[in-house]
């Protein structure tokens, strides 16, 4: 497991596209100590690693397919309504390439 220090946490935050204050990184370090300690104890539960990871509460089947029935989509105005930076009927952003 990766060692935890402020640099690792700052890097994680950067990749999540936000920053925190120095005090918060200190708080977070303490919280990690708690989490890691508790997870290590969990690792000592007999037989835990023989179990399959559980992703959903129970087995169930579902489908994503539906009938191909035409329906009214969102209007352009509805789609753009909540975007604050718009131009010429599109959402405006700093250029990604070039």
């Amino acid at each position: 497991m990766k060692a935890i220090n402020k640099e690792v946490l700052k890097d994680a935050a950067k990749r999540l596209l936000f920053d925190m204050s120095e005090d918060e990184y200190d708080t977070l370090l303490k919280e990690f100590e708690v989490v890691i300690k508790q997870m290590e104890l969990i690792g000592q539960i007999e037989g835990v690693d023989d179990y399959e990871p559980m992703t959903f509460p129970f087995e169930c089947t579902t489908s994503y397919l539906r009938e191909d029935i035409p329906a009214k989509p969102l209007s352009k105005e509805e789609v753009l309504r909540n975007a604050k930076n718009k131009s010429a009927g599109q959402i405006k952003l700093p250029k990604v390439v070039g």
């Binding site: 990766k2 994680a12 999540l16 936000f18 708080t27 990871p53």
Partner: peptide
């Protein structure tokens, strides 16, 4: 933000076995 960093850390490849996957095993 603190919660998200914890979450992201648990999902990092080198941490998944000891943290995320183990939590999922205990859930089962």
């Amino acid at each position: 933000k603190r919660r998200f960093v914890i979450g992201s850390f648990c999902l990092m490849k080198e941490n998944q076995e000891a943290l995320f996957l183990r939590a999922q095993k205990v859930r089962r």
